[in-house]
C-alpha cells in the first residue's frame, strides 16, 4: 500500500471536513494510505506570500522538511497549498542562498530541507498512482448518464503550468475524464478555467460574490446539474455565493468535491463521505445512480 502524508491546509479542517473524510476513504479503497502530517503550519499562501517572499518559502519549506524527516511524500487537496508547496520546493531547490537562510531557521527544530520530499495533489495520485482503469473498476454503482456535471479546477491546480504540471491550463480535462469513468456526463461551460473569486473575499466581498455567481450562471446555462471541485477553498466559495445575489433557492446547484462524488459511485456510505455537511444538498446527485453493477 502506497503511503502519503496528508496536509489538509488551514481551511478544510474547519470548513470542509467532509473533503478530508472522503479523500481518506476513497484513497483507502484504491489502495493508498494517508496519515495526517502533525505539527505543521499554514503554507503561507495569499497573505504572507504577498508581504514577504522569504517568509512564505520558510512556511512552506518547513512543511516539506517535516515530511522529509518522516520520509513520506505529501498529498494536498487544496489548490493554494498545491501551489505554495511546489513553489517553495522550486525556490529551495534552485536558490542556494535562500536554502541556506531557511535551513538556518529550521535547524532549531532539528529539521533540514534537502528536497527529498515530493508534493502531489490528490488528482495526481488518482491519475498516476491509481489510473482511470482502476477507478472504473472500483465503481460499484455507476451514475446515470442523464446526470450532467461541470468541473471546476480552480487557479492553482493548473497555473502556472511550469510549476503545477497537472493539466493544460487552457483546457483541463483530467477530472472530466475521471467523472466520465464514473458514468456521469460532463458538460463544458463558458469560462471554465476562470477563478472562483474566493481570493478577492478579503478585499472586496461584493466583487468576489459576483465572480463566483457568474461561474454558477455559466454552469447552469449549459444545463449543468452540479459542480465538482478539487480545491477546498473553491468548494466553499462556490457553495457560499449561491446564497447571495439574485439566485433563487430552487435554482441552487450542489457543489461537491471529487472524492465525495467518487465515494458515492464506489458504494461508500453517505455518513463516511460527510454528504450531509454540504451546504447545498447533493440529493439529486445521489439519486442519479444506476442499478448495482453485478
Amino acid at each position: 500500500m502506497k503511503e502519503y502524508f496528508y496536509y489538509p491546509g488551514c481551511t478544510s479542517p474547519v470548513r470542509l471536513p467532509q473533503y478530508e473524510a472522503s479523500t481518506i476513504a476513497v484513497l483507502d479503497k484504491l489502495g493508498i494510505k494517508l496519515s495526517y502530517l502533525h505539527n505543521a503550519n499554514c503554507c503561507g499562501a495569499q497573505y504572507v506570500e504577498s508581504l514577504s517572499p522569504n517568509a512564505f518559502v520558510a512556511m512552506s519549506g518547513r512543511i516539506l522538511a517535516l515530511a522529509e524527516k518522516f520520509e513520506k511524500d505529501i498529498c494536498v487537496t487544496c489548490g493554494a497549498c498545491n501551489h505554495s508547496l511546489k513553489h517553495a520546493k522550486h525556490e529551495l531547490d534552485n536558490n542556494k542562498e535562500l536554502r541556506i537562510e531557511i535551513n538556518s531557521l529550521l535547524k532549531e527544530e532539528d529539521l533540514e530541507y534537502t528536497g527529498a520530499a515530493k508534493v502531489v495533489h490528490l488528482i495526481q495520485i488518482l491519475r498516476d498512482d491509481v489510473g482511470i482503469e482502476k477507478i472504473k473498476d472500483a465503481v460499484v454503482r455507476p451514475f446515470d448518464p442523464s446526470l450532467v456535471l461541470a468541473t471546476h479546477y480552480g487557479c492553482h491546480l493548473t497555473r502556472p503550468w511550469e510549476l503545477a504540471q497537472i493539466d493544460d491550463p487552457e483546457n483541463p480535462m483530467i477530472m472530466d475524464h475521471m467523472i466520465e469513468a464514473l458514468g456521469a456526463t460532463v458538460v463544458q461551460y463558458p469560462e471554465k478555467t476562470r477563478c472562483c473569486g474566493g481570493p478577492l473575499l478579503a478585499m472586496d466581498p461584493e466583487a468576489s460574490n459576483r465572480i463566483g455567481l457568474e461561474k454558477i450562471e455559466n454552469v447552469r446555462s449549459v444545463g449543468g446539474q452540479g459542480i465538482v471541485t478539487a480545491c477546498g477553498f473553491c468548494d466553499i466559495q462556490l457553495a457560499q455565493v449561491q446564497f447571495g445575489g439574485d439566485l433563487k433557492s430552487e435554482d441552487r446547484i450542489p457543489v461537491l468535491q471529487l472524492p465525495q462524488l467518487m465515494g458515492i459511485a464506489f458504494g461508500i456510505d453517505e455518513e463516511t463521505l460527510g454528504l450531509d455537511l454540504n451546504k447545498i444538498s447533493p440529493e439529486p446527485i445521489i439519486n442519479a445512480l444506476q442499478e448495482v453493477k453485478c
Binding site: P8, P13, V14, P17, Q18, E20, A21, I24, Y36, H38, N39, A40, N41, C42, V48, L51, S52, N54, A55, A58, M59, R62, L105, E108, E109, E271, T272, G274, L277
Partner: peptide, 30 residues
C-alpha cells in the same frame, strides 16, 4: 461543533498546529 463534526467523521481532532515557528518568522521578517 466543528470538533464534533470531525469526530463523527473519524478524523483527527487535533492536528497540533505549530505556532512557534511562525512567531519566529514574525520577528525576523515582519
Amino acid at each position: 461543533f466543528i470538533e464534533e463534526d470531525r469526530e463523527n467523521l473519524n478524523l483527527d481532532t487535533n492536528l497540533e498546529w505549530n505556532e512557534e515557528f511562525t512567531r519566529r518568522l514574525m520577528s525576523k521578517y515582519f
